[in-house]
């Protein structure tokens, strides 16, 4: 390894021997990983007091094995349920879940809305590349209408989820959406999520140049980032736009930021009361 030029965030927070990202060239997952390490660094958090859980998919490899902390790489779609057990069992640990759109909008969809409803103190970062990356580019519940994928060769007949609306309706304390272009906003949201005492959800629209890119004809990751910048509309502005005007746009921003007692804290209060 070229020791002279190792990124300071890797030196501080990466597992030795795991510096090399497992993702394809230009994949957005690495950008999300870097944003999380930066957020942790800016908050000066102790990595030994954070547990990173993830499911199955390319996005679920963000903390695993890169992050030099306790990492629980679980089964497909279930990371939030595993993480719920961790958080309730040791509320002093911060729990962060990395998941994908297939992982938590399809197979694990119920765990996502239930975790939001329970308001369990977990920060969930859902990397939405609008495709099943790891399995080779099959349609996801987030794939836009009409898009051709490996399993929608004649175009997607279904419509994608608005995951932020879903999670907001389910009761989350913090909800935001950014793209991998909006790294500074993403870091700032991650910092809020890391400190939030309730369920936090950040959706990151991310580029998958290899699978999604191939289907939509944009294989250059940089071009995808430029497009993200162009088609993103801030939440405040989007409020005054019609459904038609918002077609094909990405609404970005913070949608929810409220204070409500989280489940782990509520449970601790109950235990204190019962064991006086």
């Amino acid at each position: 390894m070229d020791q002279k030029h190792v990124h300071p965030l890797l030196v501080k927070y990466a597992r030795i021997g795991a510096y090399k990202q497992p993702h394809c060239p230009g994949c957005g997952n690495g950008i999300v990983a870097q944003c999380m390490l930066r957020a942790i660094d800016e908050l000066k958090l102790d990595m030994d007091k954070i547990v990173f859980a993830s499911g199955i998919g390319c996005s679920s490899w963000i903390p695993s094995p890169l992050f030099n902390a306790d990492v629980l790489h679980t089964t497909h779609g279930r990371s939030l349920a595993f993480a719920t057990g961790v958080k309730l069992s040791n509320p002093e640990l911060r729990v962060v879940v990395f998941t994908g759109d297939g992982d938590s909008a399809a197979i694990g969809g119920n765990h996502l809305i239930q975790a939001a409803r329970k308001n369990i103190e977990i920060l969930t970062v859902l990397v939405n590349n609008r495709i099943y990356g790891m399995t080779g580019g099959q349609v996801a519940p987030t794939t836009p209408h009409g898009v051709k994928t490996k399993t929608t060769p004649y175009g997607n007949l279904e419509y994608p989820f608005d995951l932020c609306k879903l999670v907001e309706a389910a009761g989350a304390s913090y909800v935001a959406r950014w793209t991998t272009f909006h790294t500074r906003q993403l870091v700032s949201s991650m910092k809020k999520g890391l400190l939030k005492k309730g369920f936090s959800f950040i959706e990151v629209i991310s580029q998958c140049p290899v699978q999604y890119g191939t289907f939509v004809g944009i294989r250059d990751p940089a071009e995808m980032l430029h497009i993200f910048r162009k088609i993103s509309v801030p939440f405040e502005k989007a409020k005054n736009m019609s459904r038609e005007e918002l077609e094909g746009k990405i609404v970005i921003g913070e949608f929810v930021d409220i204070e409500r007692t989280g489940l782990a804290e509520a449970y601790q209060r109950l235990l204190e009361m019962m064991n006086l």
């Binding site: 390894m1 070229d2 030029h5 990124h7 510096y19 090399k20 990202q21 394809c24 250059d220 940089a222």
Partner: peptide, 18 residues
């Protein structure tokens, strides 16, 4: 500017975004 030649996969994002 530090570029780590062992980690870079040559995606070109830096070139395009600068």
């Amino acid at each position: 500017i530090h570029i780590n030649e062992d980690l870079c996969k040559g995606c070109g994002i830096c070139i395009s975004l600068c």
